[in-house]
Write a protein that binds this DNA or RNA. Structure first.
Lengths: 143, 143
DNA sequence: GCTTATAGTTCGCCTCACGAACCATGGGCG
DNA sequence: CGCCCATGGTTCGTGAGGCGAACTATAAGC
């Protein structure tokens, strides 16, 4: 299989797994992504927009809904009255962590047919692609 | 980077590229996927549902919109009066092919930082993952 | 101080996705 | 043959997601 179809179909696969995992945690994929991004630290709205690749108007809605569900909180920015910092609530952090862990578990299974060395090689190659293309940190590297 | 974050973030990247390419062709990602699937042959609705991972009610709408845009056609199934075969119209095929080609071109660029051998290795590894997980053919292998 | 840029929100419009309810035909099976 | 149920699809109502345009308010530069 060529590298292009492999990439596209693998993306389709990961997407499905991610969406399914989110769904079982009462989240949509987008809400899950938001939580995962915020696990690292609070973000401003604009910053979130570029990270998630969304227009600011789209983001307002996403944060609204997540806030309504008690997962996220808008805090005033100390240094800029206009700005807002979006942060996880306690409930949001808890949910984010279990969702993150469960999603890792499932994605981990996808390359189960590969040997340990092959998994490492895949991680290294894909990691380079991610790095070279400046993909935002939509999914943490926990250690 | 671990294999899980690499997979998730690479999926995010491919998604963004795919969506952007679709957008510039006047399509949504879902409509683009539909066209790409139908490039191979006509499909029944149920068959399309399992291929794209959608509930049948979701599919009805997607096909409706694509039909309204003149990209797709519902034909009666010769052997089953209930069933329907969804096929590309001439316009749909043309658009599908240019969208497919352009999307390939863009996805091709993502691993530009890799050597030829590395790209082959990536294709081989991801191909195995795709194969092992029975990912539907949402993106053709043209030759 | 005035002007322009930046941060966010709101609005209207469309797409997407789902489940539930529904209709029609097809395929057994007694 | 006639009945029952499975299968293929559509419709409907609801809610999420996404965008651009218009708007408000504060920040920053000159």
């Amino acid at each position: 299989m060529g590298v292009v179809p492999a990439l596209v179909r693998a993306a389709f696969l990961v997407n499905a797994v991610y969406t399914e995992s989110a769904r079982e945690h009462g989240l949509t994929m987008q809400q899950g992504q938001l939580l995962c991004v915020l696990m690292a630290r609070p973000y401003g709205m604009s910053e979130l927009g570029t990270t998630l690749g969304l227009a600011k108007s789209s983001l307002s809605g996403l944060v609204d809904r997540s806030e309504r569900n008690g997962l996220v909180r808008r805090e005033p920015d100390r240094h800029d009255t206009r700005a807002v910092r979006v942060a996880l609530t306690a409930a949001g952090r808890t949910l984010a962590e279990t969702f993150y862990a469960e999603t890792c578990r499932r994605v981990e299974k996808l390359p189960a047919g590969l040997g340990a060395g092959e998994r490492d090689a895949l991680a290294e190659l894909l990691g380079r692609v991610v790095r070279d293309n400046d993909v935002p940190v939509v999914f943490l590297e926990l250690r």
